[in-house]
């Protein structure tokens, strides 16, 4: 009996490692997706240095910095929620997961105000004001909307995934002994954070 149990536990262990590896492999495909855009940014920035500097001046550094702090803090709360559940503190873990979702929402609210302000200033793709600008200026805003937009989409997906993890935690599908789903969700959220860590200086701090 005890050997059987031992085998079962050992099997579970291998399964968890594979699950995490699968998640990492998925994260590499995300890296290819965003990586391609970062290469595009690098080349256009290289070709239109002066235009990029001028265009970046209209970015709101304060909102960018606040959003960076929000995402970094949400990364902390999701990491803490995993540690809390491993420490068999289910309620604390659920609260921390909930806080992570709220931080994600705050990030998007800031993004909404930021985009609204840019659109109000006429800085949106195809606007008459933007089209009259230099091609580097147009490229900067094109990249800005595509890259931060795709990142924002990832934040929304991450929030939905974490809400599912909260439901799984409540229903005891995720337990201290079977935590790999929450770990995978955490990995996804951290990757979204890392992408923002690079987007922030490239779009907000190059003036």
């Amino acid at each position: 009996m005890s050997t059987q149990e031992h085998t079962a536990v050992a099997h579970l262990h291998r399964d968890d490692v594979r699950s995490r590896m699968g998640m990492w492999l998925f994260l590499f495909t995300e890296l290819i997706l965003f990586g391609g855009m970062f290469f595009l940014y690098a080349v256009y920035r290289f070709l239109h240095q002066a235009d990029f500097h001028v265009a970046a001046k209209s970015m709101n550094i304060l909102i960018g910095t606040v959003n960076t702090a929000i995402l970094l803090t949400s990364s902390l709360t999701i990491a803490l929620s995993i540690a809390a559940l491993q420490n068999k503190k289910k309620i604390l873990s659920l609260i921390l997961q909930g806080i992570t979702v709220i931080f994600g929402l705050l990030f998007l609210v800031n993004k909404y105000f930021e985009w609204s302000a840019e659109i109000h200033h006429g800085n949106y793709p195809g606007s008459p004001e933007l089209i009259s600008q230099s091609s580097g200026h147009i490229l900067f805003f094109g990249l800005y909307y595509v890259m931060t937009g795709l990142h924002g989409l990832h934040v929304i997906i991450g929030m939905v995934v974490i809400m599912f993890m909260m439901r799984f935690t409540i229903k005891d599908v995720i337990t201290p002994d079977h935590i790999v789903k929450l770990e995978a969700a955490g990995l996804y959220w951290h990757l979204v954070d890392i992408i923002w860590i690079f987007l922030f200086p490239l779009f907000y701090l190059i003036t």
């Binding site: 990364s75 770990e183 951290h190 890392i194 860590i197 701090l205």
Partner: peptide
């Protein structure tokens, strides 16, 4: 400088938060 600092931040997230 910005890229180096971003890389250090990513390294911290990868090694500690992402285990």
């Amino acid at each position: 400088t910005a890229i180096i600092i971003a890389s250090i931040k990513s390294y911290l997230v990868l090694t500690v938060f992402m285990h």
